[in-house]
């Protein structure tokens, strides 16, 4: 093993993630290489130092009162769940703006359990995936996704607002392999997810928030601070996501008129 190999494994070793074989080879290298040994020594002690310091001094006095508060919350949940009590509506947003038109959307008051369930299973992973790309700077676009993934062209979405496609990749989201396209202009990042409609279906309870525009039907959802717009086109489910709630996602909904060419993605 040479120095470069040994240093590449530095943090795997420190975090105890390296294989036994690697660990043994690194150990042998360190016995004969003073420079690497020093780096390992310093990095290891920095790590131990940081880990010991952030743990702080024993349990905090607030913990008992926090436990009491949690018990009260659990009691409240138990009471809500008892039969005969009407379910409380869980803060869903009841109005939204799309394009220039102001449309009022009726959201049915679903039960609390269903709300939590769908937040957790259908929406949160999409919002998280968008958050994960939102803060990144995209000086060097990388395109990992084969353009033939879906029979649709995504490269021109949001063009009029100055958006360009800066990245695309395949990700496992909501248990389905989805294409994730990232668009950016000078201020904002928008994610567009696409999945074959046979594999991902728009959650049924989304139908509460249905609206139609230019012959297309959309379903909207606000997941905490992330705005999601669902629709179906051709053989695909398309989901646009933005953290800017006052911003119009409509330009990120491809139509059948946009035809894929295999060269449309670099």
């Amino acid at each position: 093993m040479n120095c470069q190999d040994a240093l590449e494994l530095l943090y795997d070793i420190i975090d105890k993630e390296a294989s036994e074989i690697d660990a043994k080879e690194v150990q042998e290298h360190l016995e004969s290489c003073r420079d690497c040994f020093k780096i390992y020594r310093i990095e290891t002690s920095v790590q131990e130092f940081i880990a010991s310091r952030i743990k702080g001094n024993g349990p905090s006095p607030q913990l008992d009162s926090l436990k009491d508060k949690i018990i009260v919350r659990l009691d409240r949940i138990d009471n809500e769940a008892s039969p005969g009590q009407p379910p409380r509506s869980f803060g869903l947003v009841a109005k939204m703006l799309v394009a220039a038109a102001c449309l009022v959307i009726l959201i049915g008051a679903a039960s609390i359990a269903t709300d939590y369930y769908r937040e957790y299973v259908y929406y949160t992973p999409l919002a998280s995936a968008h958050h994960a790309v939102h803060d990144r700077s995209w000086n060097q676009p990388t395109f990992e996704l084969s353009p033939s993934y879906l029979d649709l062209d995504f490269s021109n979405l949001g063009y009029e607002q100055g958006f360009v496609l800066v990245n695309s990749s395949k990700e496992q989201i909501c248990g389905v392999e989805m294409a994730h396209f990232v668009f950016r202009n000078s201020k904002l990042t928008v994610s567009v997810f696409a999945a074959p409609s046979g594999e991902y279906s728009i959650p049924e309870d989304c139908i509460d928030t249905q609206l139609s525009l230019d012959g297309k039907t959309f379903f909207n959802h606000r997941c905490h601070d992330c705005w999601l717009l669902f629709h179906e086109v051709g053989n695909a489910v398309i989901i646009a996501a933005s953290t800017e709630t006052g911003f119009d996602l409509y330009p990120f909904t491809p139509t059948e008129n946009v035809v894929l060419t295999s060269s449309s993605l670099p």
Binding site: I70, R73, L74, I77, I112, A113, Y116, Y117, Y120
Partner: peptide, 8 residues
């Protein structure tokens, strides 16, 4: 977190 965990 605990409230959500309890519901689930």
């Amino acid at each position: 977190a605990f409230a959500k965990a309890y519901r689930f």
